[in-house]
Design a protein around this nucleic acid. Structure first.
Lengths: 246, 246
DNA sequence: CCTTCCGTTAGGCTC
DNA sequence: GAGCCTAGCGGAAGG
């Protein structure tokens, strides 16, 4: 591909915040917190939709040079070289990639809104509690999961405690917010109508925001600290590694 | 691209130790030192010539999942899904990528034998001081570098000042922390036992955190401001520009 | 904003 | 191989 053509494509991709993958012969210079230089070689250059820039050699896990998200990227053709400069302020850093030959250059607009779940999803946290109900408290017995709470939605776990009280559990894989407290209360309000008495409400999460923790007492909501990581260990213990390796 | 076709191309690329870049719709699971799952989304999958595997989302500097060099990679088509598994032993880890759609898949054999040169590292700061000891103070004379400080580790530079006092220097390329002050003190405590008297302690860094600067006087530690960039310039001056640019 | 701490840290070095 | 330390660490959480 001609360098001028590549330059235009790159400029357009940067303008439209696209992901670009360029394979070619290039040199790389970096100056900022440290400085580095890397002579001619065939490499993979990735420019992401948020302005991240990565230069990868044919081997190794790490990029040899990079610029974090938010850098300003300039593209120009000078002296028969395609020069890509990614600048960043604070700290002031510049990454200059001098491309001599372009073997391929592709542009993509990718959609990726999936949630990255480290250790366990909310669903897996629920399974860990169903497998080991004492995570909530001694004597807790789950009865249903995903019980309908009127028009308000679904309750994660529905059960009884050792004294026969009904218990409604809401699970979050991240720190609980005041919104979560309100949601649990509104679910229980629906159920209360059906049952004629107010169940215990327990919010389960790895932590809770200060503002949310202040609301707990006023709404009669209890909090149990439980992390995705702990749930993962419980599930792993419960079923062994086989599921993954078989 | 059809999944069967992509699978064949991937297998051939792995066999021939090529670099492959796949863009498509995929799910990712990882289990090993930790565990993670990531639902469907459009991503960039890179398989390198040495068996490194990287999964990049459309934004962010870091791969969302990966496998370091040397992993065993299996490819198969099952239930209309292209399943790529990268396994590694010690630690036992598995990365499973389930590709639903392949937008593009390219294979490359890249040649990159250039040497990567990094400047203004801590090592270079030390060399700059050894080359120009007056950076510390007039009359300073380095005696040893990397002197062993008992069980505590190594001291960066060991020398004497114009009055014959022993001087111990600790270098940091980033702002000095209270941890650095403590480390220097603990090194010197070891040396003190050997020498029978307390040397001067000088912490060299481009800056110092407020909390650390408060500790200096109490521990008798001195601070010299010196940036990696300045050291880089001194070395460049010392040996001429040629080595860097030629 | 700054500081502190953690990571599937990775990677390099020594023992 | 295990242990220790550094990094253009990056990133998150807390002040």
């Amino acid at each position: 591909m001609r360098l001028e053509e590549a330059a235009e494509k790159l400029k357009e991709g940067i303008r439209s915040r696209s992901l670009m993958v360029l394979v070619g012969l290039m040199e790389v210079f970096y100056e900022g917190r440290a400085s580095s230089s890397l002579g001619e070689g065939e490499r993979l250059l990735i420019i992401k939709q948020d302005g991240s820039v990565l230069v990868h050699r044919p081997t190794g896990y790490e990029p040899v040079n990079w610029q974090p998200p938010g850098s300003m990227i300039d593209v120009a053709v000078r002296d028969n070289e395609l020069v890509i400069e990614a600048r960043r302020l604070s700290p002031e850093e510049i990454l200059r990639i001098t491309v001599k030959k372009v073997y391929s250059l592709e542009t993509y607009r990718l959609e990726d809104s999936a949630e990255f779940a480290m250790y366990a999803t909310e669903e897996e946290m629920k399974r860990a509690i169903l497998l080991e109900p004492s995570l909530i408290e001694e004597g807790f017995k789950p009865i249903e999961d995903e019980r309908r709470a009127g028009r308000a939605g679904f309750v994660d776990i529905f059960g009884v405690d050792s004294s026969g009280n009904i218990v409604v559990i809401e699970i979050k894989r991240r720190n609980a917010t005041s919104e979560d407290v309100k949601q649990l209360v509104s679910y229980v309000r629906e159920i209360e109508g059906e049952l004629g008495r107010r169940p215990r409400m327990i919010l389960v999460a790895p932590g809770i925001q200060k503002s949310a923790s202040k609301m707990l007492a006023a709404h009669g909501v209890e909090f149990r600290c439980l992390s995705p990581r702990k749930c993962h260990e419980i599930l792993r213990r419960g079923r062994g590694l086989d599921e993954f390796l078989g």
